[in-house]
Design a protein around this nucleic acid. Structure first.
Lengths: 207, 207
DNA sequence: ATAGATTTTGAGAGCTACTCTCATTTCATG
DNA sequence: CATGAAATGAGAGTAGCTCTCAAAATCTAT
């Protein structure tokens, strides 16, 4: 944690900002370990606050809801940024594939236990799943924006919005599937199969 | 369950069942009118109970959450039933289209104000939208089942699940769009356009 | 370093959705 | 009508979340 203090970031961030990052991280890890110990529902904000050595008020100051504590979502900015760097003449599905794979490798960089816990909670706890879906729909709006920039279409049109949300829906289901299978195949491989379905529909039966 | 044997519903239903239906309806209409008057968040369970002339306990006995009071969802059974009645050799997209239109006409049969309120809340109140998404994902599982029966595929396979959820996601966005546009074009027409996108991808630009 | 402005935090009160229990009432049935 | 079963009401309790206000910590300037 503290070793993260790279030579670049330290001089610009004042003590205040550094402390904020630290408490934020403390709250998160407190929640993670408590959830591993007792489960999600049994873990109260009070316990989290106690273990993170802050007051309950502070927990709510850092995270609007309990579910938000376990859901990172730095994905959206990554996706947008990567999308913009793709060559403009690349076919859209190819760009999407590239970007998704990038987002996955970046998003999975934190300890495996955390990624696993997060997706497990997504499957098991309805509230977490709901919150996840909410953030997915925000991702959808971003995708609309990107598709608009890329293809010159109106990002607010029904067609673009439906297209984006069907992609998001499909990928959401892919993460659920991955979690249900105990993260058995590579997420990358699953995403590839999912994008194939989204792009071309159900493949013909092969038996 | 036991009433399944009745040719018509009235004689078989005892006073008890009839009362249950009545209170259920009373709670719902109480909530609808209160929400129209004061908005969703400002409406408490206590007020709903009072206006419906039941106790707060009873409200929770009939509806697990506040959001469930405004969300009907008789859609799923309709969809499944209609799907089964389609000819087995009909192309899948055609079946889907038929079934969606049927579900819409059946689902919109209650007073317009109610449908409008429901979709408006879906756009405006995050909790309602979340709950709606949850129920949509249940619809997705049903679709998987139907696709499995229809095409002989494994309903649990990633491909089928992704396919189903991308459809559901697209249609969900369609309802949001419809609500945002103040229900201006026919929902039917929008669903047609959405299904086109889901089936064939984004249409080529026409300018 | 000290003083003052600003930000962050803690403490606590308060609201509401939601759960659970138990006694009472209401309906069904012989 | 009497007995059994189901629905209801009342009430206590939990926990997520909001809001307010005073105290503590950090930043800035002299």
């Amino acid at each position: 944690m503290t070793s993260m203090t790279a030579p670049h970031t330290s001089p610009t961030l004042g003590l205040r900002e550094r402390k904020k990052i630290k408490t934020r991280e403390a709250i998160r890890t407190a929640m993670y370990t408590l959830v591993e110990e007792q489960g999600y529902d049994a873990t109260t904000i009070e316990q989290i606050a106690e273990r993170a050595e802050v007051s309950p008020s502070t927990v709510f100051r850092y995270f609007p809801t309990k579910e938000d504590i376990v859901l990172t979502d730095e994905y959206d900015p990554i996706i947008m940024e990567e999308l913009r760097t793709r060559p403009a003449d690349e076919p859209w599905p190819d760009s999407l594939r590239h970007v998704m794979h990038r987002a996955i490798t970046v998003g999975m960089k934190d300890p495996h236990a955390v990624s696993r816990l997060r997706t497990r909670l997504m499957v098991e706890v309805p509230a977490v799943r709901s919150r996840m879906m909410e953030s997915m729909s925000e991702t959808g709006r971003m995708l609309c924006q990107a598709i608009g920039e890329r293809t010159g279409r109106d990002p607010e049109s029904l067609e673009v919005r439906v297209y984006a949300m069907s992609i998001v829906g499909g990928l959401m289901e892919t993460s659920m599937y991955w979690a249900e299978q105990d993260h058995e195949p590579d997420f990358d491989a699953l995403v590839d199969r999912a994008l194939n379905v989204i792009e071309h529909g159900l493949p013909p039966e092969n038996h």
